[in-house]
Design a protein around this nucleic acid. Sequence first.
DNA 1: GCTTGACCTTGCCCCGGGGGCAAGGTTCCA
DNA 2: TGGAACCTTGCCCCCGGGGCAAGGTCAAGC
Lengths: 246, 246
Amino acid sequence: MTGARHLLTISQLAGYAGATIKAVRVYHERGLLPEPPRDSSGYRRYGAEHAIQLMKIRTLVVAGVPLARIKELLAAGPERFAAAIVEIDRSLSKRADEIDLARRRIAQLHGGDRLFVSAEVAGYLDRLREAGISERTVLLERDLWILLQSAAPEQAAAWIADKLEAVTDPAFLALYLDYDAAVDWPPDDPRLTTVAERTRRWYAERATSAEDGPPADPVIFRLAAAAAGASSPAWARIAELAKQVP
Amino acid sequence: MTGARHLLTISQLAGYAGATIKAVRVYHERGLLPEPPRDSSGYRRYGAEHAIQLMKIRTLVVAGVPLARIKELLAAGPERFAAAIVEIDRSLSKRADEIDLARRRIAQLHGGDRLFVSAEVAGYLDRLREAGISERTVLLERDLWILLQSAAPEQAAAWIADKLEAVTDPAFLALYLDYDAAVDWPPDDPRLTTVAERTRRWYAERATSAEDGPPADPVIFRLAAAAAGASSPAWARIAELAKQVP
DNA sequence: GCTTGACCTTGCCCCGGGGGCAAGGTTCCA
DNA sequence: TGGAACCTTGCCCCCGGGGCAAGGTCAAGC
């Protein structure tokens, strides 16, 4: 009569615990769930004790605990088990936070540049837009910042702080608007000398008024200048002109 | 000078987007991220456009979107993309709910039987405990319900409704306490005939007062009786005695 | 009895999303 | 000039099962 204690088939067991037949067999293989007795034709026959164990296993599995760790936990003493539960709960709550963050980020996916550059740089770019800089130039500037932030994050951070200050200066914005207007001029346009002159003046004034300029790492600076120059021959020419009469 | 547009190494790119070098190479293989130009020694050199694409990829990856789907999405038009974003957000919110549920379940892992049986059965078991039934017998009853719920969920549901009603009857509880006391008696204990007599009377009374008894599926009923009988020879004897004098 | 469909068994290969390591080439910095 | 830190390709491995094959078994209906 004790055979009546093991009357569940594998699919009944799996269905009850929200698992699949395959999963149950995997748990047998990995030693998480003891193999039950077999009936006369070799079918596995389960009892309530297996159902209980399987429910525990599934609860931990859906909580994201790896099978190897589940095996340890089920074999461990209650105090170790309780400690593990606390830790698992913590990791679940962390996962929930990550999901929250992921939701906020995918929501920004079809939107602006905040996903691609730091908040500071995004703010800077928005100031440029407000000042009337063309979207094309803003995007060039954005790409430059992406390169900078990738190649030298802390230098970029120091630099953007400087730029956020500069952008409050109307003279800087005016100069930037000149550059924006000049982007498509031919390199031999005579107006470029004027822009170069204004550039020199602004830098000179700035060097006297604020003693700490951008932490001029020459390598990075040159790369940035080269990238900008590559985008616009006119800009490259302005840089050349501004250097010529120091 | 256009080489300056591609100045990031693979590790700089990966670091910026929170990926690993290996992951970036996988995205190349799968066609998610275009292969960048190589420098003179065969190293990959990336530009801002790759950084932007990689950020998009990573955002979707951490949101749990499979790489194959990400590839489709990046190639699709904006309206299809937007629709997908909505769907991804919904699935993320579902995941968040699942995590919530998982947390509540692991919290019950070291606690009572509510994890292993339905809420109704758990309530029934608690009523038995309140009535003074020994924990050992309650656990036997619980295991029986686990078998029942696994093997025939809807029959078990109908049956538990019946039991929840029975448990409000003091006569039923008194009878159950008799069984609890008898669990370890030898099968030839003379007191068993008294219990059998009370059992017969209770069933007779119930059959007249409530016309709809439990939906007596004979197979399931017999299995349950056999399981109970296997746990206690005395209970098996009571069942035999109660049948003998119909 | 006989078929039909649902179930069960083992065994094998497959997937995604990379990780790890080997074995070699390159670049940077002191 | 030498070692650390990069980079390259290639190969095998991990988890947690899914899918399929090739067979054995069971219950219901005719």
